[in-house]
Design a binder for these strands. Structure first.
Lengths: 349, 349
DNA sequence: CTGAAAGCGCTTACAG
DNA sequence: CTGAAAGCGCTTACAG
């Protein structure tokens, strides 16, 4: 009479703890005890283990996390994975988390506020045990409120933050040694170049180091030159300047301290495209010491920060806070080190 | 009389659907309907929405996934995130998944079998809706069995695979055009250099393209030279050769076709370190066209494969398979394109 | 349009 | 050492 509804193809359902219990002839509590490694009589354990094997049972982590009211997932917010600086940090963080039994959920925010908000929201809904912020994010009220209300443990990696725990490089010191290196080579007109995707706090500190070194040497520190890689103009204060003119002018800088390696390498490209030799006409220093900087063909003088060490530390701090949410927050800053290569030399003439 | 147990500090519990129901004076079904966007009277909806807002309620995705018996999480197995080839693919895949409402769990296998097994296991226990394989993995029986038994949808990205769906470049064609380019420049002694971390199937196909082009031109195709970046020796068949001697010998190759860009760039480094100019003494072609290859200072001639497009396609295929597990599997191979830059030139002399 | 009830696969006290 | 029972926060038919 009535149409028989087409039976939907049903994927073979994954066996549950109940199936195992039936197969082994024990209660599900006992199976649970075996799986969790609790005390169980040897004979029973063997029987259960065999049943598990026969059925190909795999514990359902979702169910477990649900009942335990806590997950073993960490959320990682990355600025831009195609930037090797982030990629390397992200990689090490994932490894460290995995070793400690945590799974990592990534969210690429690509520097966009709304993606960050949506990503944090998703991470929060998934009830991640903690989050690693490895990204430039303008912390708006919305984001901050969501985070604070959820009171999820957070660690900032690669930057200093008052809030939560943090692990970052000694930015000021780095700015200082980079600048001193240029001064020692004989440069007096050194510009600080600010590129996007460097966390504002780090940027400010690196600039402060630059200023301090310049002042100490009796040289004039300029205000930061804002530069967007790929373009050939910079902004200093309100004025927009042509990079070719700036570098070509007699009063122009003979050396550039660029706020990160990706920017510095892009700057080398741009300078050479504009006809300036590096370091012949202009010396360039970066910050980070990403793997790229060490390539023979690039050979960028830069301030090395121990990326791997920082990522490991950040995960360690985060896990400790997850274990004890009440502990006082910690802010670690790790030493940096100047790496002299071939992008810097004495000023021309 | 009895000791009062110290009350454990209790984190303010996140509000549940029940709290919202109480606050709004409705049943939890109604709250659920509102949250899921089902039909609800306007007045009721407003009341519930306000309660949600007051309480700062965030749906518990773990609970939802648990009851729905399916997750919105995708697992991504990456070979090595610090390799820009993988990083870029991973980044685009994550973005595409996120746009479709999926969260991405990453696992870096670093080319290690046991990490891959543990990672897949963890992903399986988390009941990911599907997995993207973006990595060289020697598929052992153990891994294969676990995957097949779980019958989790899988897509292979950047490589061709019979099993599951796949999206990869036209490797053979790529090998051919790379070799033809070198032949056209006048090279006759061209070696194929195999580097690690290229999936065997892709490696074989690229080599096949090389062979075909050589044969067609009446030149002699050698067997692959195995090379581990960072070393200065290669293996051809059973013999271990010194790279300096090989390149310096009159019968040595005047051009190298390296199986991927990272390897090719490392080869440029090594050649220059050994005193051979590129392309003066030896021409080098890569495969992938990662961003690095386009840098002025590197300027690697290479076979471009559309990484972003492939990653997008792979996620699309995966989601379609998740929606309909019974559909026939698809294997897409996307066109590649030679990108001539400055690492190749006519042979010396 | 709204509510009561069952159930997802586990863990966790608590009996026995 | 093992088992029975409650419950985690939702969704999903099904009544009303």
């Amino acid at each position: 009479m009535s149409v028989v509804p087409a039976r939907r193809r049903r994927v073979r359902k994954a066996p549950t703890i109940l199936d195992v219990a039936a197969e082994a002839g024990v209660s599900k509590s006992t199976v649970s005890n075996v799986v969790r490694g609790a005390e169980v009589a040897d004979a029973t354990r063997v029987r259960v283990l065999r049943a598990i094997d026969r059925l190909g049972y795999k514990p359902n982590a979702i169910a477990r996390q649900f009942v335990q009211q806590r997950t073993t997932m960490l959320g990682v917010l990355v600025g831009d994975l195609s930037n090797p600086y982030y990629a390397q940090m992200a990689q090490v963080a994932e490894r460290a988390a995995f070793r400690c039994g945590y799974t990592t959920m990534f969210c690429n925010i690509e520097g966009e506020e709304n993606i960050a908000v949506a990503g944090v929201d998703s991470l929060l809904e998934h009830r991640v045990a903690g989050m690693v912020f490895l990204a430039y994010i303008s912390r708006t009220r919305q984001l901050e409120n969501a985070l604070k209300q959820a009171s999820v443990p957070i660690v900032f990696l690669g930057l200093s933050e008052q809030w939560g725990d943090s692990v970052g490089p000694q930015d000021t010191q780095g700015g200082r040694v980079a600048t001193e290196h240029l001064l020692t080579l004989g440069h007096r007109r050194i510009a600080y170049v600010r590129t996007p995707l460097v966390e504002p706090s780090g940027d400010r500190a690196r600039y402060a180091g630059y200023r301090a070194a310049m002042r100490k040497a009796g040289a004039t520190a300029g205000s930061p030159m804002q530069w967007q890689p790929g373009t050939s103009t910079v902004r200093a204060g309100a004025a927009r300047q042509d990079l070719r003119e700036t570098l070509g002018s007699p009063a122009g800088p003979t050396a550039l301290f660029v706020s990160n390696d990706i920017g510095a390498i892009a700057m080398i490209e741009t300078c050479e495209t504009l006809g300036f030799a590096v370091p012949g006409d202009v010396s360039i220093v970066g910050f980070d010491d990403i793997a790229l900087a060490g390539l023979h063909r690039i050979s960028l003088t830069t301030v090395a920060q121990p990326l791997d060490f920082q990522a490991e530390r950040a995960v360690a701090l985060l896990l400790e806070r997850i274990a004890d949410p009440g502990r006082p927050s910690r802010h670690e800053s790790v030493p940096v080190e100047l790496r002299v290569r071939n992008s810097t030399g004495p000023p021309a003439g």
